[in-house]
């Protein structure tokens, strides 16, 4: 990882997107289009040019392998007040950082099941993001000038397509509708559900039905991620599980749900610091990092020993 790239980050392995493109055969064999199949080589080179959505916290981006990945379903879970909604709002803002500044320049879909999406908070985060991007690009005055109009917190807010759902049937209906919606709204690069579990946690008379609905939903979300080159982020609550006489924490919706995501990140408190832990990922090792929720949004933790040194 190059130092000082606070706004965006790419993959850090040896093969750069450019070399991957160069190595890509010019005359693609026809059979790779057959049945919608791709060669593994094509898949790899596609993955390498893929940009990731920054969380705003460099340390967290690093353990995620550059940020939140498109085409994948990432589940982020933790106790109330740890900052799940904050991360959701931050991602809905950061996905809009224009291409020229290393972002994806996309729109966001935010499905709010809990009512915690606060516009005033989203405005604060968008404003800080705009300021960060403009201050970095200030070196090149010309570029900044052409984008000054676009780089407005209100434009950022308007590009968050917000759905408020109040029952699990509405949640399913919106997800079913998205296939058609995304075919028209090609700019959408991230789908956030805050939270995926809240409406499913009241007593279901028929637990088998709940399991079936949930697995159908997770398949649909994976399909949306793949076919629209979309990052899907599912925020999840935690529950206390009672096993063998003691309580321990686990993510809500049960064991079968844990297959619903490609990546799984657990947020937790370590004394007074917020931490994130990669529990499951196909591409990066499990690791943990701190993060903080500031007035500007999700950021690195300022290490306490550094604070003391400054004093």
């Amino acid at each position: 990882m190059l130092p000082g790239r606070a706004i965006f980050s790419n993959r850090s392995d040896g093969v750069t997107p450019m070399t991957a493109h160069e190595r890509l055969p010019q005359n693609r064999p026809i059979q790779s289009d057959f049945f919608g199949a791709q060669t593994a080589w094509e898949m790899l080179s596609e993955e390498l040019v893929q940009k990731h959505i920054t969380t705003g916290c460099q340390d967290l981006d690093d353990i995620l392998g550059g940020g939140i990945h498109c085409k994948e379903v990432t589940e982020i879970g933790g106790v109330p007040g740890i900052g799940k909604t904050q991360i959701g709002i931050q991602l809905a803002v950061n996905v809009q950082i224009p291409d020229e500044f290393g972002g994806l320049g996309g729109k966001a879909i935010y499905i709010d099941t809990e009512g915690s999406f606060m516009v005033e908070r989203a405005y604060q985060i968008a404003k800080a993001c705009v300021q960060d991007v403009l201050s970095i690009s200030a070196i090149d005055g010309k570029v900044a000038e052409t984008h000054r109009k676009k780089m407005n917190p209100n434009v950022f807010l308007a590009n968050i397509l917000y759905f408020r759902v109040c029952s699990y049937t509405e949640q399913i209906a919106v997800i079913n509708y998205l296939e058609k919606f995304l075919a028209e709204e090609r700019d959408v690069k991230i789908l956030i559900i805050d939270s995926v579990s809240f409406l499913f946690r009241q007593d279901f008379d028929d637990l088998a039905l709940r399991t079936r609905i949930l697995s159908e939903m997770s398949l649909k979300l994976m399909k949306l991620a793949k076919s629209f080159n979309l990052a899907v982020v599912l925020l999840n609550q935690v529950t206390t599980k009672f096993t063998e006489g003691s309580f321990h924490l686990s993510l809500a919706l049960g064991d079968s749900w844990s297959h619903a995501c490609t990546n799984r990140v657990i947020l937790y408190w370590n004394n007074d610091e917020r931490c994130a832990y990669i529990e499951k990922s196909p591409s990066v090792r499990s690791a943990s990092s701190g993060f903080s929720v500031t007035a500007e949004g999700i950021r690195n933790i300022i290490p306490s020993h550094k604070k003391i040194r400054i004093l």
Binding site: I109, M118, E120, N154, A158, L161, Y162, A173, Y177
Partner: peptide
């Protein structure tokens, strides 16, 4: 259920009810 349509957050600013005390209101934004 009404037609599914996304809303623009710009139209969704939260209304607040005062606690009757400006200091507590300041804490609660």
């Amino acid at each position: 259920m009404a037609a599914i349509k996304p809303q623009n957050p710009l139209n969704l600013r939260a209304v607040k009810c005062t606690t009757g005390c400006s200091k507590l209101d300041a804490l609660l934004a």
